[in-house]
Write a protein that binds this DNA or RNA. Structure first.
Lengths: 248, 248
DNA sequence: CGCGGGTTTGAGCCTACTCAACAGATGTGG
DNA sequence: CCACATCTGTTGAGTAGGCTCAAACCCGCG
């Protein structure tokens, strides 16, 4: 109940920062303009070119790079509480496009308010900056996986990264991991074809290291997977103290 | 001569912003702590964990993700005037590691001064933020190329991106493009082996669309290449007006 | 002058692709 | 509520692009 009242983004921030009343108010004001979105709709309606930063309040979304209509790469996966487009300031046009993956709602942030946050509430702004940096790291890790790992290891890495992120967003209810993506979409995240993603999944299932049921997967031995692909949990490595000003 | 006196970073900023005197002073102060670096040394000496943001004043550098000693991915290529590590705030440890590629010098930025810039000179800070966003876009484009392009197209994309960046940094002297990387390193940027990079280069050379001489390449028909890989010049797409506060 | 790193080339292999077909699920309109 | 279309998942067969391994050459450098 209170879950749906308080913004997931605010919850996330208040877990790392001891927010003052005025900071909290500023954050609530930041999310003032909330809009509902349908599945497969764009996060930013193409009409307005200016504000391309948002907070995802509920649902799932992805950011994608396109070329050629059928060649797609999914660069980011967003879930409730995520900041979308913090690294897109300065760009008007697509691609990359941010697309809703399920129904959900977003808060479109105005640049003015965001800029004001930087000067009025630097602690909060810096933390937003740093939070988006985590995602950039995750992106680089996946890039490395795509560039240098064999297909099965890529997939393992992907699942581990998804789990790490869902854990961080405290969305993990059980030991089953939600995997709300088609095999085509998993392939688009990893530079693989849907057909091959399927083969790997079936192999992993047959070899008994994974169980699937509808849109969930269950990994039997996380530790082994993590060692195998040398997984680094960037959310755990993130250190909020490095975001404050006091160097010494 | 004046080239070496004025910071390349300051030059770059003043091309997009009409800097005030105090902004200029703040920027010069930001680069106060300058240090020389040898080739192959790390940009940030491992001792100090705190300040991991820098401006590259001269030379070339790269950021890399490692796993397994021999598996390397080069995520960023830095040249004089580039901001290094803007997206690493919040992280202490490697990887990714930033490594000098040639001799050069860097200015290590203190977080305090950088944070102060955000409140005292928001225009400048926002522009730094946005400039680093360009690199994130470039990164995503390369990720897409690695994930979905065949080897030769990846290489073409890489060369085009390098040219775009060098153009933007106004380092391009002639129609020859400096390519100060070994074929191994090009491979590490593209998820290819050095052997195969070599084969592609020789093929392109044999087919007459490229000429090589030491560490330079000359492309005979940029336009064809750009269309072939659907290249987007993110530096040209960047719009400084979107970084200012006035939404309307 | 010997060494090490980068480049070049050949031979053979295997991973992941393409093409194709079908089953199941989902959805959608009449 | 059924008929039809479309998307997702599954599996097989054959292919090829980029890999590995290996050797030779070039060059700068200590």
């Amino acid at each position: 109940m209170s879950q749906s009242v308080q913004s997931a983004f605010l919850t996330r921030l208040s877990r790392i920062l001891d927010l003052t009343v005025s900071e909290r108010l500023a954050l609530e004001d930041l999310e003032a303009r909330t809009e509902d979105r349908r599945s497969h709709s764009e996060v930013f309606d193409s009409g307005r070119h200016d504000d391309r930063i948002a907070i995802l309040r509920s649902g799932w979304a992805t950011a994608q790079v396109h070329s050629d209509h059928d060649k797609i790469t999914i660069t980011h996966i967003y879930m409730a509480g995520d900041l979308i487009g913090f690294n897109d300031l300065g760009f008007a046009s697509p691609p990359h496009v941010s697309v809703m993956h399920t129904v959900g709602s977003v808060a479109i942030l105005s640049r003015e308010k965001l800029f004001a946050m930087a000067s009025d509430h630097p602690r909060v702004f810096n933390m937003m900056w740093a939070l988006s940096n985590i995602e950039t790291r995750v992106l680089q890790d996946r890039m490395h996986a795509i560039a240098r790992f064999a297909a099965q290891d890529r997939l393992m890495h992907f699942i581990l990264a998804l789990k790490a992120k869902i854990d961080y967003a405290s969305l993990l209810k059980s030991d089953r991991l939600p995997l709300p993506f088609s095999q085509r979409e998993v392939g688009d995240s990893l530079g693989l074809t849907a057909v091959y993603v399927n083969r790997i999944l079936r192999n992993l299932e047959k070899s008994g290291s994974l169980t699937r049921s509808r849109s969930y997967v269950k990994i039997h031995d996380w530790r082994t997977w993590e060692e195998r692909v040398q997984f680094r949990n960037r959310y755990a490595e993130f250190d909020p103290r490095l975001v404050s000003a006091s160097n010494k």
